[in-house]
Structures are given as C-alpha cells and as structure tokens.
Design a protein around this nucleic acid. Sequence first.
DNA 1: TTATGCATTTACACAAGCTTTACATTCCCT
DNA 2: AGGGAATGTAAAGCTTGTGTAAATGCATAA
Lengths: 231, 231
Amino acid sequence: MSAKKLLLIDDDLELTELLKEYLSPQGYELDVAHDGEAGLSLATSNKHYDLILLDVMLPKLDGFEVLKKLRTSHLTPVLMLTAKGDDYDKIFGLEMGADDYLAKPFNHRELSARIKALVRRMALLPSGSVQQNLKLGDVVLSPSAQQVFCADNIVELTGTEYSILHLLMINQGSLVSKQDISEKVLGRKLAAFDRSIDMHVSNLRKKLAVFSPEEKIKTHRGAGYLYVVPA
Amino acid sequence: MSAKKLLLIDDDLELTELLKEYLSPQGYELDVAHDGEAGLSLATSNKHYDLILLDVMLPKLDGFEVLKKLRTSHLTPVLMLTAKGDDYDKIFGLEMGADDYLAKPFNHRELSARIKALVRRMALLPSGSVQQNLKLGDVVLSPSAQQVFCADNIVELTGTEYSILHLLMINQGSLVSKQDISEKVLGRKLAAFDRSIDMHVSNLRKKLAVFSPEEKIKTHRGAGYLYVVPA
DNA sequence: TTATGCATTTACACAAGCTTTACATTCCCT
DNA sequence: AGGGAATGTAAAGCTTGTGTAAATGCATAA
C-alpha cells in the first residue's frame, strides 16, 4: 500500500505545521494550501489526493465554496474542519457533499482516527473510479479526454463503447451484470431479447483486439461481463 | 434508486421509536434490534443493510463486540452512537472499523446528514463490492467476481456450480439437503429421480480436485451434502 | 435534400451448460 | 452375504445465451 496523499486547506499556519508534523510519521503525504483558491487548484490538479481536509473559514474562497466547486468535477473524500462547533454548519457541509465534519479544537487522535476510517472505506473503491487515468495492462483510459489507448495506439470508440469500457474497467475483477450496464450506460432497463449490450461488447472486443491479443472482457454466461485484471 | 435499508441497534425504546418516525419519511427502511445479539444476527443475515446505526451500551453484547464480530465477515458501514462523549471511545470505535461516530444527545438533523453522507459515499461503490471473500482452507470464493480460487488457481465454474459451492461454503460444517439446494440454486422443488444436483456436485468435485486433493464436499447418504470445515 | 455515424434490431450459427439417461458403484438393512 | 436404494459419473440430448454479420432506424451534419 503506497502512502496516502492528503491535502490540507487551512490558513492557520500554526495548525498546518502541527498537523504536518503529526501526520507525516503516520505514513501520510501531506500537501498544504493556505487559501481557498490555491486549495481548489491543487485539489483539482492531477495529484489525485486520497482525502482533503478542508477548513471552512478561508481567505479568497471559503470552505463551502471550495467544496461546491470541487464536487462539480471530483469525488475526492472531504473532511471539513471548522472553528465554529455550529450544528447548522456541520449539517450544511455534510449536505453539500462533505464526508465528515470535525469541530475545532479537535483531539489529534480523533482526527487521525477519522482520516483512517475514511481512507479505509475509500480503499474499497476500485482504483481510479475517482476520476483519474485508468491503466490496466496495455489499456489506458483517460476520462478527462474520453480517450482510450491500447498498446500506445489510440482506439477510436463510440460514446457507448467508451462508457461500457469505463464501467467495466472501474469494476475490474468484478462481475457487472447486463442489467447494470444497460441502466448505467444506456439509461434504461434491460428488456428481454435486447442484444444491444452484446453488440457493443462485441465491437469493443474487436477494436481492442486490433492492438492486443489478450482477452480483456470475459463473459459470465447468464450473469454479465467482467474486465480481467491483468497479471 | 430503491429505499436504503438501515439497521438500528439500540436498547433505548424511546429513542428507537423517535428515530423510526424521523427517518421513515426520509425514505429509509429502518429495522430495529434492542440488544447486541439480535442486532448482530440481523446484521449478518441476508437482509444486506446499507448502513448500521450502533449504540455502544447494549445488553447481551456491547457495541464494540458487535462491531468486532460483524467485521469478521461483513463490511457494512457502521455509524456508532454513544451516550458518553468520550474521545477515547470515539477513537476506539473508529479504529475498530466504524465509519463514523456520533455522541448522544445528537441533533437529529446532524444524524440524518451523516447517514446521508455515508449512504451517498457507499453508493459509489460498485454493487456487491461490500461482500467480502469467503475463504476456507485453500479455497477462496469471491462473490463480487463470482469467481473461485483453489490453491491460488482460478477454477472455471459454471453459474450453477458456483451457486452450489457458495451455498455449501456459507453453511460450512452443516448439512444442506438436496431439497434446499434445488430450491435455492435451481429455483424448483426437487423431483423424484432428479439427478441434476448430483451431477453438479460431481463436476464441482472434479474441478476442485484438479488443484487440491483433500475432500471438501462430503455426502450424507439420504440427507444431502456438507462442506467440510478445514483443519 | 443527401450523406454520415452510431445505436438498435434481426437473424442465424454456435457453444455453453443444464438435464436426462444409463450403468457402475457404494452404502445400508435384513 | 445379498438385495435394494441412493449415489457417482460418463455420455448424449436439449435448451438457451451469446457472437457477430447485416439490415434497419435515427439522429445530426454537410
């Protein structure tokens, strides 16, 4: 397990220093931003943080604004911190899409335990479903560009093919039922005798096979499809 | 999106009633258990709760014990509740595998917001990834992939074979009647002279025997089959 | 309008896998 | 022991899901 990357957005220099010293020995890589704008730009950069610690009272862009803008494009987990122990604030933050909320002053060990709990839970998510390039064997899928490369060649996929591949890759090693594919990709229930998904998968396989011989999408008869985790 | 199923384990009758009335209109299905044992048995049943609200002070089995036992087999998210606002308690709970911790008395809206945050986060997990693998001796069964490994080799099973193995492994050490297998796996009553199950078990044994010599599925003549608990 | 690109439906061949048959074997019970 | 019933299993039969080419539909662009 590689070191988890955290981003701390807080303008309190004393606190950020303290937390840096406290969290580093626990095996976290901690970046710090001292205002909302800098924080947001780091958070949306390609550094792909595992967790963001976000203060509410911030210069330039307050915590709620940062959270709101972040959530338009990223699902990175966010733990909010605030000087005010205000219930309303807490509820507002959580409703806006924060994952946890801790009032200052907090017990360092509680912060550490909450970070650990969030990171642990997020580790169950398949790698990269929080929007970064998915690389599996010789296939690379780039969500930002909606492009797929196979053995360094661009693969020209249609929108639906791309979405199906994306879904399967996110769920690498797990079975995805046709029902799920239909609902998530085509936006409709799978009807009896609907062969649409089969066709898209067939075309997808054909296009990938041009550049790479290994079987990537496995069929589970009567159940669905599965993206094979490369050795 | 179907209604989320919550399990509340708390012996405070007044509180459970209150929460039931508070949470139902918000679109949650809430089951209640009033002691640790009942709670654990519901939590590990096949009802598949989306979230468990767990009080610490409980008759029969306290909250920490319930959490500990639950986590040996299930990854269901847990939000702990406690009368004591004790930091040590909080940290202990989170370290044990709880996902969140709220001290009583709490603001109902905060509880609701925290439930929402957890459920929202869990919804990102691909369906089925909360089920954890079943490991018995050198056999590992992965429900999310519907795949089975034996002595580190993938065993290619058909859907029916997989289901039968799953059923037997879940009931390790106890007898499962052919009637039960037929009804749960094939979805029909076992008819006289129906040799279907026998065939599937035979094929299953053959496939497992390729990688491991020990007998895993034992026959109880006239009664059914049993998965042997490994030494 | 006509072209173009993509999603969907149709059609059919094929293969996977569930079930049945048939016979060998094993396990009880007397 | 011997006989009958339950089980093991190979092989055949049959049903159904899947792969895929080709036709169709249906937008949007030229």
